[in-house]
Amino acid sequence: MMHYQIRVSGFGGQGIILAGYIIGKGASIYDRSNVSFTQSYGPEARGGACSSQVIISSEEIDYPHVTDPDAVIIMSQAAYARYGKNLKPGTFLLTDSDLVKVDPEDLVNIKHFSIQATKFSEDLGKKIVANIVMLGFFTGITEMVSREGMLKAIESTVPSKMFDINKTAFEKGLQEAEKAKVAV
């Protein structure tokens, strides 16, 4: 039985909710798993600490909230303080290394990988695709959603004239994931 709980977190405005939505769409519509996607709603989604949650399962999903994540993506220090601690052993913790300073004590038995997602997106000329770089990294590291499914979900979600840069961003994240896995 496959059952993944995933949390994406950061500042409102970084595309945290969109990132969770794309993971969910890729897993649901294209990988054909059962998926529930929930999100912060209200002022926090438009500024402060923001999170979105995805459950992917081979079984019918009853309780729709993430309680004990198997993968956590973190793109701000405030989100790290809230969601980066007391993770269960074996959890994937993915951080933007320029935005999140991790505490080594939190990393015992945790599969921690970091990427300069925001910097790479700036190199591409579009800071708003940092979330998509992170999605590529997430896909490559965790393999919880297929690459094809994720790419189709991106294509059917972002404006068509923006697809190319998003695809490049996604692939950059995938490449970095391969490097990071070799390094481990």
């Binding site: 939505y21 969910g24 649901s28 519509i29 059962n34 998926v35 529930s36 996607f37 929930t38 999100q39 709603y41 999903i61 729709p64």
Partner: peptide, 10 residues
């Protein structure tokens, strides 16, 4: 309700 309204599924 709000939870169903703002929850996304297939």
């Amino acid at each position: 309700d709000e939870a169903v309204g703002h929850m996304t599924e297939k």
